[in-house]
Design a protein around this nucleic acid. Structure first.
Lengths: 224, 224
DNA sequence: GTCTATACCCTGATAGAC
DNA sequence: GTCTATCAGGGTATAGAC
C-alpha cells in the first residue's frame, strides 16, 4: 500500500526538521521532499506548526521501535544499554557528517516564545527518553549505591547526550562527544565500584581500571 | 562619551540573539532596539551575519569580565568555581523565566549548513569556556585522581551546562537543571574521595556525604 | 555617517478549478 | 483530495538625498 499523503508529509518533515531545524525548513522544502503540492498539505494540516506537532508525536511514538530496540539489539546489561543508546547518537553524528544530532534538542533550543503545545510535546519526548534510561537504572539498582536517585541520574544522562551532541555538531568532531561519554562512563564506574565497596567493606574502593569500552565498539555497527 | 552606532548595534544584537536566537531576530528588531536606522547598520556591517560574527567576538572578549569574574567573586576554591559558573546559568534561567539560556549554545544548534566563519567563532567560545574550567581543574589537580584527564573533564562540564540549560528551557523548570548539576557534583565528590583514598590508603573510600551545596546558594546572590 | 524610501525575494497560507 | 496560481506580509539588503 502506498503511503498516504499525510504519512509522506510527516516523514519528509521529520527528516528535514532533524537536519535543518524547524525554522530553517520552509514549507516549500517539505513539499518538494514529499512530492506533494501546497494545496494538499494545507488540506491535511492547518498550519506548519500543526505539522511539527504531528512530527513530534511521530517521534514519541517511534521511540521504542526506531531508537531503543535498534540500540539495544544484543545488549542485555542495563548499564551497557544506556551507553549503547548514547552510541547510537554518536553513530548518527558520524554517519551524517555531524549534520544530524538529536532532533528534539534542535527544535527545543529554537523555541523562544512560550509556545505551549510544542513545548509540551518536546517535554514529553524528553520524559519518555529519560523514562527508558530510568528503567535501565532500575534494573541495575542493586549494583548502584543506595543514595543514587534514579530519575536524577536519568536526567543527567539526557543532559550528557544533548550537551555532547551540541559540541560534536559545533566542532564537527566526535572528540568532545567522546570526552563527555567517557566521563559519564567514569562516573558510572565509580558508582558501581562504590556500591561494590559497600557490599564488601573489606575491599578498598580504589579507582577501577574500567574494562567495558564497548560503547565505542557498538557505534561501529549498524543500528539496524 | 556616547556609545558608537556600532557598539549600540552589537549590544542590541547580543541581547536579542541571546533571547530570541539568530534566525528569529530580524534586522528590524535590532534596528528598533538599538535606535539605529537601516542605512547606518549596513554602513557598518555588510550583512546580518557579519553582525553575528561581531557579537560572537564580543562574547569571546567578554568571557572574563562578564561571566567568570562575576561568577567567581568571593569564590576561591577551584572546584567551587566550576559550580559557581554553573550557578550563574541557573541564575540567568530563573531570572528571565527560562527565556535566556546560553547564547552560544542557542546559536550553535541553529547552524545547519557548514557555515565555517560562524562555526569557528562558536567553537572558539566553547574552547575559551572549557579552558577556564580546565584552569580550575589544574588548580585542583592535586586533589583529583591521577587518571583524570583535565581537558576531557572540562568538556564534560560544558556538556553538563548546555544539556542542563536545554532541559530547563524545555521544561521551563530548574528541576532537570538541578538534577544534572547535582549529579555532576556527585561525580566530583567521588573523584575527590577517590583521590583522598589513594593518598591515605588506610581509609575506605565510602561514598562521602557531601556537604558543599553552595552551588545552590551562590545563585541566589546577584552575579554583580 | 545618517536618514527615508523602497527593491526584491521568499515566507506561510489561500482560492478555486478539476 | 489534488492541482495551479497567487496573495499579503515580512525578510534582508540597497539607493540616494542630505
Amino acid at each position: 500500500m502506498a503511503p498516504s499523503t499525510r504519512a509522506r508529509l510527516v516523514e519528509a518533515a521529520l527528516r528535514l526538521f532533524a537536519e535543518k531545524g524547524y525554522g530553517s525548513t520552509s514549507v516549500a522544502d517539505i513539499l518538494k521532499a514529499a512530492g506533494v503540492h501546497s494545496g494538499s498539505l494545507y488540506h491535511v494540516f492547518p498550519t506548519k506548526q500543526a505539522l511539527l506537532l504531528a512530527v513530534l508525536d511521530e517521534y514519541l511514538e517511534g521511540i521504542r521501535s526506531m531508537l531503543l530496540e535498534p540500540a539495544w539489539a544484543g545488549v542485555d546489561d542495563p548499564v551497557e544499554r544506556i551507553f549503547a543508546l548514547l552510541a547510537i547518537y554518536r553513530h548518527f553524528l558520524v554517519e551524517t557528517d555531524f549534520l544530524f544530532g538529536c532532533p528534539i534538542g534542535s527544535v527545543a533550543l529554537e523555541l523562544h516564545e512560550p509556545d505551549p503545545p510544542v513545548r509540551e510535546k518536546l517535554a514529553a519526548n524528553f520524559t519518555a527518553w529519560k523514562k527508558a534510561v530510568a528503567a535501565c537504572l532500575a534494573d541495575a539498582q542493586s549494583r548502584l549505591p543506595e543514595h543514587v536517585d534514579i530519575n536524577r541520574l536519568a536526567s543527567f544522562v539526557l543532559t550528557t547526550m544533548e550537551g555532547a551532541v551540541m559540541q560534536a555538531r559545533t566542532y564537527r568532531s566526535v572528540e568532545a562527544f567522546d570526552a563527555s561519554v567517557d566521563s559519564l562512563r567514569d562516573y558510572f564506574d565509580l558508582l558501581l565500584a562504590t556500591a561494590t565497596a559497600r557490599q564488601a567493606p573489606g575491599a578498598h574502593a580504589r579507582h577501577p581500571r574500567r574494562v567495558s569500552r564497548n560503547a565505542r565498539n557498538i557505534q561501529k555497527g549498524e543500528p539496524q
